[in-house]
Design a protein around this nucleic acid. Structure first.
Lengths: 109, 109
DNA sequence: ACTATGTTGTAGATAATCTAGGTATGGGTA
DNA sequence: TACCCATACCTAGATTATCTACAACATAGT
């Protein structure tokens, strides 16, 4: 497939923050996890992923640290910060608000 | 208000097509209607609305015709075409697919 | 004459995502 | 050894949707 969007614009930050909520992960694993939990519907391209991670780190919502990955290589593990947790709540609320509003229109008789 | 997005990027076409489904309307009315049905959550700016309408017309999904509006002025009424109805179905399915996938992530324990 | 509302429109900025590359390491296999 | 594949990071440039901020005009009401 390919044509039908891999992501909904504006939701990637939310997806990443949410994925990091339980535990720190490196970028590659974040993308795999989003893909897996979404039943392969959401595909996070690397050209979207890494800029997003840098954006989020710059905002102070996540913090990266080089560590050894499960496979024995160096990988950058990102952890949610306190500000990141607040941001996650805000973005979650905003998503719920907007998607509900859209559904009011879309699922009209 | 203002900062939190007025729209989710990529959904405006869907909203417009859906709004035109029951009957032809002019742009101004489309925007008002989306705003109203969404409980004032979705705000369609004019700078988003008119380019979107022209886009949709160029794609052949809607067709515009100048007519007299309820207030007695000239307004461009847009009607859904057959192709537009098909497009509406496709975009609706895609939205449902993607938003469901996002919700799998967002509403995880 | 002025103002508020309806109605259409455009130009330019902003920003997120995608395409398409590149680099490097380690494991497995021929 | 050589080779390939999966993992893991990265960036540059293109694309595209939306937003900000205008301009223009009509009608109705004060």
């Amino acid at each position: 497939m390919g044509k039908p969007n891999d992501l909904v614009q504006g939701t990637l930050d939310l997806l990443i923050l949410k994925t990091l909520r339980p535990e720190a992960m490196h970028g590659w694993a974040i993308a795999k996890r989003i893909q897996q939990i979404s039943g392969e519907v959401l595909q996070v391209q690397q050209g979207s992923l890494y800029p997003a991670l840098h954006r989020l780190e710059q905002q102070g919502w996540i913090r990266g640290k080089w560590q050894e990955s499960e496979t024995g290589r160096q990988a950058k593990f990102y952890a949610l910060t306190a500000a990141g947790r607040k941001q996650l709540e805000a973005e979650t609320a905003n998503w719920n608000r907007l998607s509900a509003a859209i559904n009011l229109i879309v699922s009209e008789a």
